[in-house]
Design a protein around this nucleic acid. Structure first.
Length: 421
DNA sequence: TCTGGGGTCCTAGGACCC
DNA sequence: TCTGGGGTCCTAGGACCC
């Protein structure tokens, strides 16, 4: 029988901040989205204060004074690096792993020669904590969905491990204690529909009529129900397919009516997107530029996008910028205060699989060599050391990040200094 | 003053084919 | 008056995930 473990880092972003700043231990921490907009991660203490996920930062800022809340800008360089460390520890111990997100990892423990899986998970948990400083919880189950349920329970327990892989009576109790909306794959809309049909807990959903599930939630819902019943529908995906799209977009710190400002942003996003593409070894056959006004604002709204082909498919920054700017010219309408823009690369393939066009000349190999050189220089000297276009250092549309921690592990200048005495 | 960013999959419907 | 039965491909929109 398959056995999956889900390892989930506890309050991951908050835990990362604590690794290099122990003064934050025991304090309520809220980590904010880009532009310091809303709360995207909380420490347990912040959860206890009743701060909901996704709250706009300004609604809870009064708690900084009254309750000692620490609000931090997000620091993805730090979180990404610590995530890689956690995953490498897991890879060292488990037979097969699937990195599911920045803070979660599925393990396939089928065939692992240990007598007591739960004890093995406890030991793994301790190892991750010792080696990386990040606390994790582990859930065990016969399917990924049940491993997720187990993980939710593990999170709330002192032990940090919950085993639903062995005992059916434990599964029943666990599902009865799990609201249907907490099940992996059941979002807000479906939870509402379930409630209307009297399906309140995961146990109710597991026993819901298949025809109803199929009709209301399609094939996806059906798979979830099977997984809740202990059938492993989803396997471990340790060799994921190449991604199909790649997006780089940002909300601006301040809205702007200036065509030049928005175009500067589009050029920057096009570069970033092209870098991501090359990092993944892919080329894009089409791209879209999109711009939009503040969807929460009172002013006139505008949201437009324009798609153009990239022929031949490419990951060359110069071509992608050129095309992005041409698409931008098609989107632009005067008279609106724009708050967000982005570049979306589409129809991604490996270069060798990309369709050839009889009438367009093959890509210039010197361009590819230039991109390699730029990427290597930026990897060594820091992102943006070499870039296209003029730098726009303090642009009003730039991201607001008032309180970001240092990039302790990814920038030479930010390496923590140890002091004695 | 202040509300993120980046993905995936599935389905329905239309155009088109034989 | 009567108006088939399959297919494929594409797109837009809606659901979900972190």
């Amino acid at each position: 029988m398959p056995t999956f473990a889900l390892v989930d880092c506890n309050n991951f972003y908050a835990s990362c901040e604590r690794v290099f700043n122990p003064r934050l231990v025991g304090k309520p921490i809220a980590v904010l989205s880009n532009n310091d907009g809303c709360v995207i991660a909380r420490s347990n203490e912040a959860k206890t204060l009743g701060i909901p996920m996704g709250t706009p930062a300004f609604k809870v800022s009064h708690l900084c004074k009254s309750a000692g809340l620490v609000m931090l800008s997000s620091n993805y360089a730090l979180y990404g690096d610590l995530s890689a460390r956690v995953m490498s520890v897991l890879a060292e111990h488990a037979p097969r792993i699937e990195v599911y997100s920045i803070d979660e990892c599925f393990l396939d423990l089928h065939g692992l020669a240990v007598a007591d899986l739960a004890a093995w998970c406890h030991a793994l948990r301790q190892t991750v904590l010792d080696w990386t400083g990040i606390p994790v919880s582990v859930g065990l189950g016969p399917s990924k969905t049940l491993a997720k349920v187990a993980n939710h329970i593990a999170k709330k327990s002192a032990a940090g491990v919950c085993d639903l892989a062995r005992d059916a009576s434990h599964v029943e109790a666990a599902l009865k204690a799990t609201p249907v909306g907490d099940v992996w794959g059941i979002g807000r809309q479906w939870a509402k529909r379930c409630a209307e049909a009297g399906i309140i807990t995961a146990w109710d959903l597991r026993h819901a009529p298949q025809a109803w599930v199929r009709q209301q939630m399609g094939a996806v819902g059906l798979r979830t129900v099977l997984e809740l019943g202990g059938t492993a529908v989803h396997g471990l995906e340790d060799d994921p397919d190449d991604r199909q799209t790649c997006c780089c977009s940002r909300t601006f710190g301040e809205a702007t009516r200036s065509r030049g400002d928005v175009q500067d942003a589009v050029v920057l996003f096009a570069q970033r997107a092209a870098e991501k593409l090359r990092r993944d070894g892919l080329v894009a056959a089409a791209m879209q530029t999109f711009i939009m006004t503040d969807r929460f604002g009172q002013g006139p709204q505008c949201s437009s996008g324009f798609t153009l082909p990239l022929s031949p498919p490419t990951s060359d920054t110069q071509s992608i910028i050129d095309t992005a700017v041409r698409a931008f010219a098609q989107c632009w309408k005067d008279g609106f205060a724009y708050r967000k823009a982005g570049v979306l690369l589409l129809d991604l393939t490996r270069p060798q699989d990309a369709p050839r066009d009889l009438f367009t000349p093959p890509p210039n190999p010197r361009h590819a060599a230039l991109m390699l050189a730029i990427d290597a220089a930026n990897a060594r000297f820091g992102r943006g050391s070499i870039r296209f276009g003029l730098p726009v250092p303090q642009a009003a549309w730039g991201m607001r990040q008032r309180n970001r921690s240092p990039s302790y592990t990814t920038r030479w200048e930010d390496i923590p200094i140890a002091k004695t005495g």
